[in-house]
Design a protein around this nucleic acid. Structure first.
Length: 811
RNA sequence: GCAGGCGUGGCGGAACUGGUAUACGCGCAUGCCUUAGGAGCAUGUCUCGAAAGGGAUGUGGGUUCGAGUCCCACCGCCUGCACCA
């Protein structure tokens, strides 16, 4: 009787106590580093989506070990973060307690799946032994000028009394409490990700990552090349700079739009009688924008100021416009009839427009001249201005226009990025303290490395007030001596974004217990870069971009000798509830991993999650379908038991040996390409074949079963281990070498040759794979089914694909 | 709007560089076994047709001896970013 609840814990204990999945740093074998994005240990416990990724890396890791690789496959906990803190506030329990309980629960759940982790390398980002080195990383970046402090507007949730990361703002509202998020100016720490914008972009090309993830990162970085035009404000000593990516039609510009929250605006309107009205109006736009994320009807107000357009000396009115963004480009735009948004805005406020780009069709050109619609097609449009370019195609003239504008000192070429520096400050408790001391005389000072870690105080009232709870801790000793002058100074009381913790964790796994340094050059050079990284697509931009940035920064400091941390990346698709919706407590469609493991066994759940569909596709859970994976395991169980009980080992039919080799080939290739669903279907087909063979009374070679169990063991390790031991093996199947296949045997002895007439399949017969065209044609023409169509017709052409088909083309 | 992707049975999904469309699994039907079975085994399961044969991979075109696969247009869906100048 197959009883997973007995055999699974037994083998899990055996693997653990033997330490057979522990990575040997000194191994001379080829090495491979397989990394799961480590989980955030929430109080809710594991989601069935977690084991989806972990099973995939487990299959791959077990496969690589069997192939003779030394595999580093660690697991740890991304343990700091807001959910634990909010949970603690709600329950009145310290986040350290709840986090430790969650970790224990996660560890138990993950171990119940029998994943082949090296548990001696387990890390916890909320432990002082780990965050000491997160602080070290901060200081290294600080020393290099890559960490800096400045006043900046941030997302602030009034209800939670805390800043939120951009990704925690969903549709303008707080992800947790759904209240609107406002912009607030605070002194904040930033990492200078923008210094690496270009390399973060170009580095993507060489990576074996899913195309959509690369596209998202490219999008996020948002490189844009264009011109910066400079122009004086009439009657003022202010110069206005505007960025244009689509500058081909710059001669049509008739007004200027400035962002309502632009820092230059107060100065610009100072002294005007309606200055207050303009600033109030602008503030309203800003407030409205924060609450309403829908793209509203553009609004604006005339500032009363003009720029003198360097192109023609004409005065262009400056408008405050809701569509102008302070954070993008220079925050000020020159506007024209050749941009949809500008066009709509000008129509609304009756701002004069002009055209300098026309379609080639005369009727259409006339309509554009009459401003009947906005024309912006620089691909096909023809310029009318300046005179030198009249009649020329806009796209073809792009470079010449740029040169023209530069030569006349109208503009300078400029590349801008959408990417902003990474805001890492958090006014919350459950995170890594920022290791900085602020002195009135010496300014911002690094905590000396010898004083690290700056411990997170435990005696904290973490109820949110808007100020970091660390400021109110007695033991945190916010008052310290300045490391530079010795005078009383103030500790930084903010903590770091948890993405800082996770930006370098994969490095720590190489020497997780080293108290003297974050990692050693030797271990890094041995294991890194990561061969394969697997996780959810929700980390597509943030985590993966930050990790890349940190790697590049550490490389430039001489700590690392690779450019990209994750050579190959795979994303698991989300597992949805049975209703096809995202699993959530409120929908009541959550599948609990504990109960399915309890009911079916870990091997069945592992198989089922891999069999559901392509690894990176979203797929709904089906309680009905999971039984198929269990039946497959029981079928294999029965086959092996039958062979043992009935002494059915012996010579086997030749086609069984062939099928085995085909199965090994297909499963091997499918594991390499992460096509686990088809690998499993191949093994199912083979088990069906074996079952039939036993039913008709034939015997099987023991080696055939053993090879099959080895490939199965990467997917369903417990049952494979159990059956392996029943076949009288004393060592673990987890240590058995991957079976090789004979390419000759993996091919079909006879193939089905399709016979088509005019492309329609009319017949087929078995043939040797190397049957020639002449032989195939000769045989085909003797078949009745073919004769019926070819009799008395002239054969115009014969198409022959070796070992596949013959197509006879007649009239 | 921009970017990436997807449309194949009742359902999840197969189909390598174009070459038997619907593998494998679920479900369903019939039968065997059984005191019984929500167990196990066997057979069947796109569609029209008695058959011969025909029609089906979102829609319409195209390339080809041959298209689920390649090209063009359209429709629908999903994901991410989005007033990005």
């Amino acid at each position: 009787m197959y009883s997973p609840n007995n055999i699974e814990p037994k083998w899990q204990k055996a693997w653990l106590s033997e330490g057979i999945f522990n990575a040997d740093d000194a191994s001379k074998l080829p090495k491979s580093y397989i990394l799961d994005m480590f989980p955030y240990p929430s109080a809710d416990g594991l989601h069935v989506g977690h084991p989806e990724g972990y099973t995939a890396t487990d299959i791959y890791s077990r496969y690589l070990r069997a192939k003779g690789y030394e595999v580093l496959r660690p697991m740890g906990w991304d343990a700091f973060g807001l959910p634990a803190e909010n949970f603690a506030i709600k329950k009145g329990i310290h986040p350290r307690e709840t986090t430790e309980a969650s970790i224990a629960n996660f560890r138990r759940q993950i171990q119940s799946f029998g994943f082949s982790y090296d548990w001696t390398r387990e890390i916890n980002t909320s432990s002082p032994e780990y965050y000491k080195w997160t602080q070290w990383l901060f200081l290294e970046l600080f020393k290099k000028g890559l960490a800096y402090k400045k006043f900046a507007p941030v997302n602030w949730c009034e209800h939670c009394h805390t800043v939120l990361a951009n990704e925690q703002v969903i549709g303008g509202a707080c992800e947790r409490c759904k209240n609107p998020v406002i912009q607030k100016e605070l002194s904040q720490w930033f990492f200078k990700v923008t210094d690496y914008a270009d390399e973060l972009l170009s580095g993507l090309d060489s990576l074996d990552w899913p195309e959509n993830i690369k596209a998202m990162q490219r999008n996020w970085i948002g490189k844009s090349e264009g011109l910066i035009f400079s122009a004086p404000v009439k009657d003022m000593s202010i110069e206005i700079r505007t960025f244009s990516a689509h500058f081909e039609a710059c001669y049509a510009d008739t007004f200027v739009a400035i962002a309502p929250d632009h820092s230059l605006l107060p100065e610009l309107v100072a002294g005007l009688p309606n200055a207050k009205e303009i600033l109030d109006f602008s503030q309203n736009i800003v407030n409205e924008r924060a609450v309403n994320r829908e793209e509203p009807e553009p609004t604006g107000i005339f500032t009363g100021r003009y720029i003198v357009n360097p192109l023609d000396g004409k005065e262009l009115p400056i408008w405050v416009a809701s569509f102008a963004m302070a954070q993008y480009g220079t925050g000020i735009v020159k506007c024209s009839a050749h941009d949809e948004r500008d066009f709509a805005f000008a129509k609304k406020y009756q701002i004069p427009l002009k055209v300098c780009l026309l379609p080639t069709d005369p009727t259409e050109a006339e309509r554009v001249r009459n401003f009947e619609y906005c024309y912006s097609d620089t691909q096909h449009g023809v310029l009318t201005e300046p005179a030198e370019f009249a009649g020329k195609n806009a796209r073809d003239s792009r470079q010449d226009i740029a040169t023209y504008c530069q030569r006349n000192s109208f503009a300078q070429p400029e590349t801008i990025y959408r990417l902003r520096d990474w805001l890492v400050s958090r006014q919350r408790y459950w995170g890594t303290p920022i290791p900085i001391i602020i002195c009135d005389t010496c300014g911002v000072q690094a905590v000396p490395e010898i004083d690290l870690p700056v411990l997170l105080p435990e005696d904290v009232d973490f109820l949110p007030t808007g100020e970091s709870p660390l400021a109110r801790s007695a033991s945190f000793s916010a008052l310290v001596a300045c490391p530079n002058c010795g005078n009383p100074a103030q500790r930084e009381v903010d903590t770091m974004d948890t993405f800082v913790c996770s930006s370098w964790y994969y490095l720590r796994y190489t020497s997780p217990n080293d108290a003297d340094c974050p990692f050693t050059k030797e271990a890094i050079d041995h294991w890194l870069p990561v061969s394969l990284c697997v996780g959810g697509a929700e980390h597509a931009v943030l985590h993966l971009l930050y990790a890349r940035f940190v790697a590049k920064a550490l490389r430039d400091m001489g700590f690392l000798s690779f450019d990209e941390p994750f050579t190959r990346l795979k994303n698991q698709g989300m597992i949805l509830g049975e209703d096809g919706e995202k699993m959530s407590k409120s929908r009541g469609n959550v599948i609990n991993p504990d109960s399915v493991v309890e009911q079916y066994g870990a091997d069945t759940v592992r198989l089922y999650e891999m069999f559901m569909g392509p690894f990176s596709d979203q797929k709904p859970w089906s309680t009905q379908s999971i039984i198929g994976s269990r039946r497959f395991i029981e079928k294999v169980w029965t086959i092996v038991q039958t062979c043992i009980d009935e002494q059915r080992f012996g010579d086997e039919s030749a086609h069984i040996t062939r099928d085995l080799h085909k199965t090994i080939k297909k499963v091997t290739e499918d594991i390499e390409s992460f096509s686990f669903n088809t690998a499993i279907s191949t093994m199912m087909i083979f088990s069906n074949t074996l079952q039939k063979e036993l039913q008709v009374g034939n015997s099987l070679q023991k080696e055939t079963l053993e090879s099959f169990l080895i490939i199965l063991s990467s997917f369903a390790p417990h049952v494979a281990e159990e059956l392996w031991s029943q076949l009288a093996h004393s060592d673990f199947i987890a240590r058995a070498p991957w079976p090789s296949y004979d390419p000759a045997l993996a091919k079909d002895e006879l193939v089905m040759l399709m016979i088509q007439v005019n492309g329609k399949t009319r017949d087929h017969f078995e043939a040797a794979p190397d049957m020639s065209q002449e032989d195939a044609l000769a045989q085909a023409l003797t078949q009745d089914a073919v004769k019926k169509y070819t009799q008395g017709k002239e054969i115009k052409k014969v198409v022959f694909v070796l070992g596949r088909l013959l197509n006879i083309v007649i009239d």
